[in-house]
């Protein structure tokens, strides 16, 4: 990687800011991992690549709702972005099937929290 200059930093910021796409984020901080996020992450990664689904799976930090870990945030075009909590591998597969493929939200696992 070439060292950044102020201009290049600015460019990179603008370029990266605009990148949008279907995305699944799995909370992979200590709290999430302790609750089983590693397994959820692996299942999602594996299934997405196996079925060639148009979504990328990424790690993220702790959102703060440790009581609801493992947390999975899903941003898919045409569906409101939501955060699923207490996700296990089974629910993770359901999320892929319903949310990502059929564009329908999954019942009983959505956690919304009121943050500005």
């Amino acid at each position: 990687m070439e060292k950044l200059t102020p201009q290049k930093l600015e460019q990179l910021h603008k370029q990266k800011k605009q990148q949008q796409g279907n995305l699944i984020r799995v909370g992979m901080s200590s709290c999430g991992i302790a609750a089983g996020a590693q397994q959820v992450y692996s299942v999602l990664k594996e299934e997405v690549s196996k079925r060639g689904l148009p979504v990328s799976v990424e790690k993220c930090g702790c959102l703060g709702m440790c009581y609801a870990e493992p947390l999975v945030e899903v941003q898919v075009e045409g569906v409101p972005t939501v955060i699923y909590g207490k996700v296990n591998p089974e629910v993770a597969l359901k999320i892929l099937e319903k949310h990502v493929v059929s564009k329908m939200l999954v019942n009983d696992y959505i956690f919304t929290f009121q943050v500005e």
Partner: peptide, 29 residues
Amino acid sequence: SKQLRIVLRNCGRINPESIEDYIAKGGYL
């Protein structure tokens, strides 16, 4: 009464292992 996120502004919103994710959110500016 809602939460207000300054310190945790990016926690759970970016991939902590990617510097470019942080830069996308205005990091190092």
